[in-house]
Design a protein around this nucleic acid. Structure first.
Length: 460
RNA sequence: GGGCCGCUAGCUCAACUGGCAGAGCAACUGACUCUUAAUCAGUAGGUUCGGGGUUCAAGUCCCUGGCGGCUCACCA
């Protein structure tokens, strides 16, 4: 169907009449306009719609009567010759029709289409038939991930697959889903991140690895969160987080250029320009977007008590025992996150929020870490990897203590990961990119459900 | 989990202040040899999300449950 539409739509009526092009195609009946012994129909195949002209005196009485029994939604095969109608529409003049499959249930209405979001998500197949723009989003999604792979492979990256079921759910702070292996009689967790396995591969000498696959987090659902979501993670030895900012900028602009043919896009009513990426530290970002007077100084932001006062001032709730790093994180989210519309790398997060990241030499309160924001969404998270096994062990122990205090999302100790680090991991930088959110921005979709074919819903 | 909003025919939507549950498309029957939201004539189609209550009378009001949307919280 696509080839047919592309090849013949430029041809004029005279050319078609002269060439007498015979074609054979198939698709779903979308509309029927009967006129006695003549019927016009539209069929949809491979996302393309083409008109078919059926005449009893051409296909024969038996075939025509059979055709008249068909319903909208049925799948038919068509053989015929291309021509243009009085209104110049490219049309197949049918020689013969084959009935291929029946639609027992009626399709959504042709004019208004399908708009009930619940049916759209629960019966995505109907959504894909009725709404061509939805089909386009998922075609685009596939092209984007394909271009990401092409880009990383051009940089000598190796695509790998690491366990989705893990005895310890590490690599992120999140609640995992739990399952159970009967034969081994042991609990397993669906992974919340592939990070610790990918870094084991760096130890093993694969200097550039990436994985695009699902992560699972047992947390709330929202327009930006689905319990299973797709993450790109990549690790590059002999590099630091600043190198990854450069790489990320190059990757996204290359991919978007190839997929969209330009670097301007619209998301949630805002124009976004992917030709330049800003870079600010967390502290600079808070100061930059501080509303009203009394912009806090860098010193203010580095003292727990003053950050507590600032949070009260802007009306953010927090727990009494929260540390400086957590409080600063809250302040950043409240003050800055919504304003980060244009692509912005925000770097130097508190080290205690980043138990797997290397501290900054100049200021150990901060980690060599950045997040990328586009359209107000957190798209990526990256850092220079902590490769000192002794410090990593200490940081895990702090996490274990936090867990003992009731923090369900704190990391668990991973002895084998520490052992791997003891064999020596080169200085490495790693990054995770939320693919669903990236697709949201690149397709102008305001809900993550619009870019996931079968988003999670309660059973109906 | 909290707040607000929604759920009526297969689909898209009506139904005033509580007063016979309706239209278009889809389906079915018939007419029609260049239509394209084809047209014309006719037919059929309902647990008004479920359960309970108030009332002479409930799609409409009250209670309760389900599902969904938005939002806040949680959450990298």
């Amino acid at each position: 169907m696509r080839e047919l539409a592309q090849r013949f739509s430029p041809k004029s009526r005279e050319q078609l009449d002269k060439e007498q092009v015979s074609v054979q195609t198939a698709g779903r009946l979308l509309t029927l306009r009967g006129h006695g012994k003549v019927t016009f129909a539209d069929i949809l195949g491979a996302g393309e719609r083409i008109q078919v002209y059926v005449r009893q005196d051409r296909v024969g009485e038996e075939n025509y009567q059979l055709f008249r029994l068909l319903d909208i939604g049925d799948i038919v095969g068509v053989r015929g010759v291309l021509f243009r109608t009085k209104t110049d529409e490219l049309t197949i003049f049918a020689d013969h029709l084959d009935f291929l499959a029946k639609a027992l249930l009626p399709l959504p209405e042709k004019w208004h289409g399908l708009s009930d979001v619940e049916i759209r998500y629960r019966q995505r197949y109907l959504d894909l038939i009725a709404n061509p723009s939805v089909r386009e989003i998922f075609i685009r999604r596939s092209r984007i991930t394909s271009e990401i792979r092409r880009f990383l492979e051009s940089k000598d990256y190796l695509e790998v697959e690491t366990p989705m079921m893990q005895p310890i759910a590490g690599g992120a702070t999140a609640r995992p889903f739990q399952t159970f292996h009967e034969a081994l009689n042991m609990p397993l967790f669906l992974r919340i991140a592939p990070e610790l396995y990918l870094k084991r591969l760096i130890v093993g000498g694969f200097d550039r690895v990436y994985e695009i696959n699902r992560n699972f987090r047992n947390e709330g659902i929202s327009t930006q969160h689905n319990p299973e979501f797709t993450m790109l993670e990549f690790y590059q030895a002999y590099s630091n987080y600043k190198d990854l900012m450069d790489l990320t900028e190059e990757m996204l602009s290359t991919v978007v250029q190839r997929v969209s043919g330009g670097l301007e896009l619209e998301f949630d009513g805002k124009q976004i320009d992917l030709s330049k990426f800003a870079r600010y530290s967390v502290l600079e970002t808070i100061r930059e977007f501080w509303k009203g007077d009394g912009v806090p100084s860098t010193e203010d932001l580095c003292e727990r008590e003053r950050v507590r006062l600032l949070l009260q001032k802007v009306g953010v709730e927090f727990k009494q025992d929260e540390s400086w790093g957590k409080l600063l994180g809250r302040l950043f989210e409240r003050v800055a996150e919504d304003h980060l519309i244009q692509p912005t790398f925000v770097y130097d997060f508190p080290a205690e929020l980043s138990p797997l990241a290397k501290r900054k030499d100049e200021d150990p309160r901060f980690a060599e870490r950045f997040e990328l924001f586009i359209g107000g969404l957190e798209i990526a998270n990256a850092y220079s990897e902590l490769n000192d096994p002794e410090e990593q062990e200490k940081r895990f122990e702090e996490q274990v203590q936090a867990r003992a205090r009731g923090d369900q999302e704190a990391h668990a100790m991973d002895e084998d990961y520490i052992r791997a680090l003891r064999y020596g991991m080169p200085p490495t930088a790693g990054e995770g990119v939320g693919i669903d959110r990236l697709i949201m921005v690149l397709t102008g979709s305001c809900s993550i459900r619009e870019v996931i074919l079968f988003p999670h819903l309660r059973p109906d």
